[in-house]
Design a protein around this nucleic acid. Structure first.
Lengths: 220, 220
DNA sequence: AATTTGAATATTGTATACAATATGCGGAAA
DNA sequence: TTTCCGCATATTGTATACAATATTCAAATT
């Protein structure tokens, strides 16, 4: 019984996964209210597990709850997204520094493979997911599970915003891939200072690429 | 109607506050299971709002939930506490750098007052709370609400461990107060680099003070 | 004796029913 | 017309009842 993969999942968890998926995919748009009875009937469950799922999603930052007013898909302001990028930088900077000394050849190989996968034509749609997996694999050797879980939530919330509001430009994506590759090379050379500097540039560039486009849109 | 302080609170929120308080105060000890029916009857509510409160607390890291097995007060391993201290450093380093340029005389005065209050004889019992308030006031000018909320959770979880396992030594506390004071002075001088360096020393010293004592205890 | 099986019990997960609160609309008063 | 009140409706919050799962402990088998 090494891998008890068929673990007992509760309805609430199931529902939470479904709704999270819809929010991340953009099927549920920011600001949209979630009527409990309606969704419960649609999914074939009662409101009780649905409410617990909503609590979970609220904790993850995907919905906001107000007493007697219900749940709405959490709207992210531009300021909040910028703050999330700053959070990324704070967390990833620390994780990268702690991860590099513990990376092995297996890690580098996996990172290379992920970069290749990102460059594949169908990698475009899965940009958010692949980008996360790259960073996740990169920070796994740091052995900081709590921090990593936190970071995942930050990435997800950023992705949701991206998916909703804007697609990243082709140049932006290519630049991202190049920087990923350089990041791996610096890690291979155990150049912690260099890698941290590049990571900072990488994240702030992504943030600016995004927010600049958003500001232009806001003016139209 | 500027401050609608008597906002409608739900039973679930009330229960969550009560349980959180008990956990932070150490009345509910780490590893202790929480029987839903028992607690619900004691608090005079049904299990439904209690369950929602437990979800909330789980999201905050105070309890862990397992399907069909119930809730237990989350046990914190030494490794996790050390990781929380690292998280503190990652977050607070970024917040401090962003806060210092926006601090005004009012902020400095409030910080001084908090240090005095910490030194008061009755400040001993409220060490955790006062320590948090000092750091909170310090980072408020950074205007990063999401990050600050996250940081509060980290502090709370660390405090819980402290309260439960160990009281900080008198020398440790005094050193902490001195460093708080120096921190304010460096901020007054807008010496960001110096303040960051001291903050790193401050947090790692606190962590080591704690974990060293813990390791000694583990050997007995 | 040690291990296993399985029914009895305890505990959690979910559905249904009811209570409390918010929302929307129509009419009355200014 | 505009504003404000109050009732009707919709929606959320909570209690009770029931179903599903886990735990316990004693008997049976080796």
């Amino acid at each position: 019984m090494a891998d008890d993969t068929i673990l007992k999942r509760t309805m609430a968890e199931e529902v939470a996964d479904i709704l999270r998926g819809r929010i991340l995919a953009g099927r549920l748009k920011a600001g949209e209210p979630i009527r409990q009875e309606h969704v419960a009937k649609e999914l074939g469950v009662s409101r009780i597990p649905l409410r617990e799922a909503l609590s979970q999603l609220a904790a993850e930052g995907f919905v906001t709850l107000a007493a007697h007013k219900g749940a709405v898909v959490a709207p992210l302001s531009l300021a909040e997204v910028e703050e999330l990028f700053e959070l990324r930088l704070m967390l990833e900077d620390g994780l990268l520094a702690r991860a590099i000394p513990h990376m092995g050849e297996g890690d580098f190989a996996m990172l290379d493979a992920l970069i290749d996968e990102s460059r594949a034509p169908d990698g475009l749609k899965r940009w958010g997911e692949l980008n996360w997996r790259f960073h996740e694999v990169m920070y796994l050797p740091a052995a900081r599970p709590v921090t990593l879980k936190l970071l995942r939530r930050v990435h997800d919330n950023i992705d949701r915003y991206l998916r909703l509001e804007i697609a990243m430009s082709a140049e932006g994506r290519n630049r991202g891939y190049r920087e990923h590759q350089e990041l791996v090379e610096l890690a291979r050379a155990r150049d912690i200072a260099g890698a941290r500097k590049l990571l900072a540039k990488h994240i702030t560039a992504t943030a600016e690429n995004l927010t600049a486009t958003l500001k232009v849109r806001a003016e139209t």
